[in-house]
């Protein structure tokens, strides 16, 4: 009897809250505006992102030459990817770019941020280091190729300084390292600019306190700069992860030529997907789509991990 009484009284207690919310003209207005505002973006997002992604997922389960009949293959494309040594190498290169190039880019960006913080003419320097970002990656990579070739500017300069046998930069043994150096060079300006914007927000008096307390440069960075720009670093890490996995044109234009692909040793997963679809004779869209799905999964995992890693209470200042 008691239990029944409770059940009967519960709705009675909650009821007033709902009509109260509904009765607010503002809340009602908001509710009515919700779909008209969301729908256009949602439709576009579904048509141009969700559906193509689902289509790619479906294609990845098929053997398909892009034309002609599609043959259901189940997970065979994924199995072949796992066993293909060229894909394994491409995947390893993707991870190397992600972590090694990413690590070097961020280390350099932090360093430049610290150096530029108090430097005279910092705006001019910031514009200069941002410069590689406003030029097409294709142009940069072609230029990079001519700088490093056997009789290029770099080797001529090294010979001037007395090095008779400069390294064979574009030889297969060094090619990937040169690509990674190029990527660091291209990316550093972009991340330095974002990080500097974050540093600019930090009140100067905090640094004055550091000076009064006798903190050195590392302590200033560790206890003031880094904590106060942590959320921006997190966003940068996510941005880098997504763009690192998609890097394509720099490698393609730098190491390939005359319409031919670069050597398989320097392929990353993006190049592998391209090669499967467009450079393997009879196109293998299934395999290319499976590579795309692997890249999507990698991006997804990394973004979730990074969001967790950088999850901290935002410091208010």
């Amino acid at each position: 009897m008691t239990a029944t009484a409770v059940r009967e009284t519960e709705p009675a207690q909650r009821q007033p809250a709902v009509p109260a919310a509904q009765s607010s003209p503002l809340a009602r207005g908001r509710k009515r505006l919700f779909w008209p505002f969301i729908a256009p973006a949602l439709v576009l997002y579904v048509v141009f992102y969700i559906l193509p992604t689902l289509a790619t997922a479906w294609i990845s389960l098929n053997k398909w030459a892009g034309a002609g009949p599609m043959e259901f293959a189940g997970l065979d494309n994924y199995r072949r990817l796992l066993l293909d040594p060229v894909f394994q190498g491409s995947f390893a290169n993707t991870l190397t770019i992600l972590f090694a190039v990413g690590g070097a880019t961020f280390a350099l960006s932090f360093l430049l941020t610290m150096i530029l913080r108090d430097m005279a003419g910092r705006k001019a320097v910031r514009a200069i280091i941002f410069f590689p970002n406003i030029i097409s990656g294709i142009v940069l990579s072609i230029l990079w190729g001519f700088l490093f070739q056997a009789e290029g500017v770099v080797n001529q300069a090294l010979r001037t300084f007395g090095m008779d046998n400069p390294p064979n930069w574009l030889g297969t043994e060094n090619l990937f390292s040169v690509i990674m150096i190029g990527l660091v060079w291209v990316q550093t300006g972009f991340f330095t600019t974002i990080l500097m914007a974050a540093v600019d927000r930090i009140p100067k008096d905090l640094y004055e306190v550091c000076d009064l307390e006798g903190a050195n440069a590392w302590q200033r960075f560790r206890h003031v700069t880094l904590p106060l720009m942590w959320d921006v670093v997190g966003v940068c890490a996510v941005l880098w992860s997504i763009s690192a996995i998609k890097i394509f044109e720099f490698i393609y234009a730098f190491a390939g030529a005359a319409g031919q692909l670069p050597p398989t040793k320097v392929w990353n997963t993006a190049l592998y997907a391209y090669a499967e679809a467009f450079a393997s004779g009879v196109p293998k869209y299934g395999s290319a789509a499976a590579t795309g799905m692997v890249m999507l999964a990698l991006v997804g995992v990394l973004v979730v991990l990074l969001r967790r890693m950088f999850r901290r209470d935002t410091v208010q200042f």
Binding site: G145, F146, Q149, A150, G152, N168, L170, G171, A257, A258
Partner: peptide, 8 residues
């Protein structure tokens, strides 16, 4: 330099 040049 044949093995370290950029076509062409």
């Amino acid at each position: 330099g044949y093995d370290g040049s950029k076509f062409p």
